[in-house]
Structure formats: C-alpha cells, structure tokens
Design a protein around this nucleic acid. Structure first.
Lengths: 150, 150
DNA sequence: GGATAATAGTTGATTTTGTAACTAACAAGC
DNA sequence: GCTTGTTAGTTACAAAATCAACTATTATCC
C-alpha cells in the first residue's frame, strides 16, 4: 500500500473537520483584536475576558465569572490579581460569605472596558461584514449552540 | 453613573462577539476529540495535526506542514521530535537540499492516523448533525473564510 | 456542637508555548 | 570563489497554561 493510497483513506478531509475549522477561524479572528488589548493595556486574553464580564454585568465573584465564561479558577485568580495590581478592579470580601470576593471595576477599569468594547464592536462589524446579515445571524446562532452558550 | 448603567454601554454584548463565540465553540468542540488522541496515543494537538497532514498528504517537510496548517516552526519541530521518539514518523534528509527533512509516517503512525481519522469523522458527523445539511455547509464555508483557508 | 464534607480562592510544581538567537545549508551577485 | 542574504530547522530562555495540593470558610449531618 503506497503512501498515497493511505491519503485517500475514508472520504474524510481535515480541511472540513469542524473542530479544525473552528480553531482556525477562532485563532485568526482573535489575532487582530488581541493586539489591541495587549499593546494598549498590556492584558492577556483571560484578563480581557474578566474585564469584559465585570464591565458588562457589574459586580461578580471569581466563581461566577469562571462559570459564565468557562474559565478555570486558577486562570481567573491570576487574571484578577494582575488586573488588581494594575488598578483596573478592586475586590472586597463578601459580608455574607467570607470565602467570597466581590469584584468590581475601578473607574480606570471602566474606561478601559468602554474603550475596548467600542473597538470590539467595530471589529465585530468588520467580521460580520464578510457575510450577509442573515448568514451572520445564523453563524452566531450555530456558534452559540456549539459553544453551549445561552 | 451606576454599575448597571455601565453594563448597558453601547448596544454591544460579549455574548455576540464573533471572536468570543468562535473561541468558545472551538474549545468546546475540541474537548471531546482531544480526549481521544490524548488518552489513546498520548498526543498533543499539534502532534495530531502533524500526524494528520502526513497521513493525508503523504511525504511532507516540516516547512510545508507549517505553511498548510499555520503552525509555527518551533511547534512543528517539537511535535516532529516527539512523534519520532514515539515511532510514529521517520525523517530523512533530502538529497536535493540537505537543509530539508522529508517526513513520513511509520506503519504505526499510519495505523494511528487511520484510527483517529475514523473517530474524527464520526465526531464531525455528530457535530454536523446538530444542524441541517445546508446550514452545516454554510457554516464550513464561513469558517473557511474566517480562517483564511482555501 | 463537633466531625466531615464541600466551596472559594490561592499557590507551587510541571508542562507547554512563544520569542529570539542560533547552526547549517543553499543562493545570488559580483 | 567569496561575501551577503535567505531558508530549514533547532535550541535556550522567558511567559503562560495546567494540575494538584493547599488555606480558609461555610454547610451537612449525626
């Protein structure tokens, strides 16, 4: 059996494998926006996500952010620490349950959030512009389903 | 301005941000299949991708794999080393250009490739089954475009 | 109320990745 | 044929992700 016959195994092609396509599209689409929060605010992706959740939902605990965004608690813990060091958020022990920390953005954090949001919105529009409005709507719907969101 | 008003900034929601949706869907959809190549063959994602490309296209150089799959050469280098150590592939210096290494799968590598391919195909069918055939086709088309493939 | 289990979050050790500098081989210009 | 530049691939060091063990607090249950 030649190498080339092996290549024709099944009727399956990596180029069509959904997890592969999803990963490629995710990497590619994240790259450009990543430059913004990285260069402008020195943030990592997890930090941007934590910032976003706090900006979007207001006061949250680390646990809640982790559950909503499916981020592991150690990543959250380190992201919160860095965001706190850079004065983008502050934490305070909950009175009700002293294990819990309530996280909120500082004014600087809110400003960064607003700035990044507006850039994200622009960037999203640019990506969405590759397709018709109906197609983009369907894409988001399918991605939410695949990502178990909503 | 209250925390909650901040949340209503713009008409933009992270839940709809395409890079976020793409990343969530990519992570979620990769998880299950990842268990297979990880637990059954002790492979990392890059190794599975390298194996796949060699199985699918036959003899390739590290450079070619990197170009096709958009993987950085250091990642390829390490993946090739590990796959070689585990006897899934062998390399030989090109006669024509002695900088280049020609990579091919060993029989064990081909067996792993076939096994993983058939599981991948099944898994892909399962994901595709969430939607209609037309929807899935459109999804793949859009993802290829977003990932700059094809 | 005291032992046991569960939960929120942190820390440390190990693995994996990313960046930059490196070696070796080839190519081009003169 | 010898400098200069380019390309394939590796390696070293720093940054980040992962996993397991840890502290502190609360909940359960006898």
């Amino acid at each position: 059996m030649s190498q080339h016959d092996t290549a024709k195994n099944d009727d399956f092609d990596l180029q069509d494998f959904l997890p592969y396509l999803l990963n490629r599209a995710a990497e590619e689409s994240s790259l450009e926006f990543q430059q913004v929060y990285k260069n402008r605010y020195g943030m990592l992706r997890t930090e941007w996500r934590v910032l976003f959740h706090l900006g979007n939902y207001g006061k949250l605990t680390a646990k809640e952010i982790g559950t909503r965004a499916r981020i592991h608690k150690t990543k959250i813990s380190r992201a919160v620490h860095r965001l706190e060091t850079r004065r983008y958020l502050k934490r305070s022990r909950s009175e009700a349950d002293r294990r819990v920390e309530e996280l909120t953005l500082t004014p600087a954090g809110q400003a960064a959030y607003r700035d990044l949001c507006s850039i994200a919105a622009q960037y999203d529009a640019k990506l969405a512009g590759l397709f018709s409005a109906e197609e983009t709507d369907l894409l988001r719907k399918m991605l939410r389903r695949l990502g178990h969101i909503g």
